[in-house]
């Protein structure tokens, strides 16, 4: 019985922490760093901006 109470309580508290903390943004310590995993290939953004710039330049001409 005490086993169920201890581990059941632990599960309940952990779920409470998850549902509350999960909705909060991670600290700047976590998000503002250079060595983050680049899953969505952000480096290609520069190329698109450059291509925008080129297209605009063409329009100008």
């Amino acid at each position: 019985m005490s086993n169920a109470l201890i581990f059941g309580g632990m599960a309940a508290i952990s779920l409470f922490v998850f549902f509350n903390l999960g909705k909060i943004k991670a600290s700047k310590n976590q998000t503002n760093r250079n060595n983050r995993i680049n899953r969505f290939r952000e480096s290609n953004q520069q190329n698109i901006i450059e291509s925008d710039y080129k297209e605009e330049k063409k329009d100008e001409e």
Partner: peptide, 22 residues
């Protein structure tokens, strides 16, 4: 089973704290 459930969610919450805090 209840021990495994408690430990699983315990690990979930503690790692979430570690992740969010950096």
């Amino acid at each position: 089973a209840i021990q495994a459930i408690g430990l699983t969610f315990g690990i979930l919450a503690s790692l979430l704290v570690c992740y969010k805090s950096g």
